[in-house]
Design a protein around this nucleic acid. Structure first.
Lengths: 345, 345
DNA sequence: CCGGGCGGTGAGAGCGCTCTCATAGACGCT
DNA sequence: AGCGTCTATGAGAGCGCTCTCACCGCCCGG
């Protein structure tokens, strides 16, 4: 209240005056463009320091049409994002990358259809240079919204439709799933079950496909669908146990579901990994390292994926519309996964 | 790429022209001010719809000096925020409140001292109307930074210093701790231990104080310090068990630490709650409902606290500097806690 | 029938910045 | 010495919006 520097934030004009140059020159120095004599540049820089000048972003945006801000849109129905730290990790990666490029992160959480309109308006309003979209279901309208708003977009996770110029970053869900199952096979397990995620999400489908790649003729009763929650994992495990008491291994499509499965196995008196081997997916460390026993899982580098999303988006934003210089067109990114061996399998 | 409405985002001028009014009148309608004849207003609104007009926020900010955006600053060293969903829940509350008031949420994550400078510059740059600060230690310089930048601020959690005009929102840590201990006492427990959080955070200190309020003469060996991680909880529990094998109850300063303690108790062959009763703090549902056994804990309404922070900040921002109308001065908020009984105590 | 008030509207100044374009020197060449 | 060529700098036009202020009718009271 007392300390408002509000009253008189210095303007470029003031800096210029103090340095004895024109506003144009001051601007050039501030923005680091070439061709200002060193002596002058130094004078300007000193003036900036002395005055504590910080450029007014609004004024800048008004003329450059760049916001140096991107939106991170999280479709809330997908409560998974708040139940496990997946989202937080990804945001951290995004934040780091954006910070490195002097961009701001505007967080948009949506809840219900009404919010979609709000987000649509916001994106159309040109407040941000691009958008990162999360947590989409097959029929999600968010990407279309963003496209209609003319805002470059990168999606977290492979979207459910195919479309040449839809950019996304995902891990190799299918390959990771194959690795998981092969690992179980290598352990000598023969009655291998799968707890899938909700099948309206591509990650779930891809992991299921990977499972089937390795075990095409697996007993269909050995597959159950969960919902990416511990509860869902436990229920799926219970169903599996009832249908096939001889199950000797489980590949759960997420660590969180695996933790539920682990609990159910313990309840039913099975030992892990002796009686039933369990393997998860994601390597959410705060889950996988803290289950009992610690979870063998398929690791995806979540934070790095966040970074990549940001990087990809920034590149897309920066790409001149009609590009003469033949930069390679931005393309979706699929990152490798890695088996992390702990105690559960 | 193809669908850029970039080229020609309609301006107020265009709306005015189409509606056959002046820009001033169009502006009045768009901003909902009184005193425009209904017929004209209607014409303007139609023009807005037809053109798909969205106000240019940068231009607006340039003249009004309001951003309709607030920053959420999270000091990262405090990794707790990414290890448990505490932060995510709080952000959700904040987001809801901001959305309801047409404000945007700019997320600033910091990592290391260099980032503080960046944040300081950002705040000083007048990009946001206010800031929400999280995860501060006793000696944190962030609040001073914000104050120097002249940005209204609300802090998440009681800060370590006392200062009449520092606004914060916190739960009644001390009272909650008292309730926890009394509950244990009511269960007939007599060797009650406490696993404290890091004592450079006020939440930890307050909870410890609450513990001591009820048990002023408790054996000092029955108190151990953790670090708000499962690991820390487990280690603290191990130490407690070694020092006082006769311990029959534990109050952990967080659910996450309680989960570690639970694991350690199981490892040591203790039954919960029969041999040792355990109670946590926070009621992070994804932890407390999923430990084995489910955790009795002290609940704080995290999302609501987020809302309150946002509301408090928005009120502060809106408050005219020299206020003639005698609105009650904004004050810190301390919310009540509630014992949630599950199986562990 | 006239003057004052008042509600509705428009003209225009500016918010702080970037960027184009003109200009003033400095320099190399013929 | 004269000319063109550069390079460093400044002047000034806007970006899209809000807001003040002047203005124009209209209504009411006298």
């Amino acid at each position: 209240m007392s300390d408002q520097s509000f009253a008189s934030r210095p303007t470029l004009e003031a800096v210029a005056a103090r340095a004895g140059v024109s506003r144009a020159t001051a601007s050039r120095v501030v923005n680091g463009s070439e061709g200002v004599r060193a002596a002058l540049a130094e004078r300007v820089r000193r003036a900036v320091d002395e005055l504590g000048y910080v450029p007014n972003q609004a004024a800048r945006t008004l003329v450059t049409r760049r916001n140096d801000a991107i939106a991170v849109v999280v479709a809330e129905p997908e409560t998974r994002f708040f139940a496990d730290p997946f989202f937080a990790q990804q945001v951290r990666g995004i934040s780091k990358e954006l910070t490195a490029h002097d961009n701001q992160l505007v967080l948009l959480l949506t809840e219900g259809a009404a919010d979609y309109q709000r987000v649509g308006r916001y994106l159309a309003g040109g407040h941000v240079d691009g958008a990162l979209l999360f947590s989409l279901h097959d029929d999600d309208s968010l990407p279309m919204l963003a496209r209609r708003a003319g805002v470059p977009t990168v999606i977290g996770g492979r979207p459910g439709w195919s479309d040449a110029d839809t950019l996304y970053v995902d891990c190799d869900n299918r390959g990771g799933a194959r690795d998981a199952v092969r690992h179980l096979l290598g352990l000598g397990r023969r009655r291998i079950a799968h707890i899938a995620g909700p099948l309206d999400q591509t990650a779930s489908v891809d992991r299921l496909d990977g499972f089937r790649d390795v075990l095409p003729d697996n007993d269909p009763r050995l597959t159950a669908e969960g919902d990416f929650t511990p509860d869902g994992g436990a229920k799926a495990m219970a169903a599996l146990l009832e249908r096939c008491p001889d199950v000797d291994a489980v590949f759960a499509a997420s660590d969180v579901m695996a933790s539920g499965a682990l609990r159910m196995l313990r309840t039913s008196g099975r030992r892990v990994p002796e009686d039933v081997a369990v393997i998860g997916f994601d390597d959410i460390v705060s889950v996988s390292e803290w289950t009992d026993p610690p979870l063998t899982t398929i690791r995806q580098d979540i934070e790095e994926m966040g970074r990549m999303m940001a990087r990809l988006l920034l590149r897309t934003v920066a790409a001149p519309a009609a590009n003469g210089t033949e930069t390679p067109a931005p393309a979706p990114i699929v990152t490798p996964t890695q088996l992390v061996r702990r105690a559960s399998a």
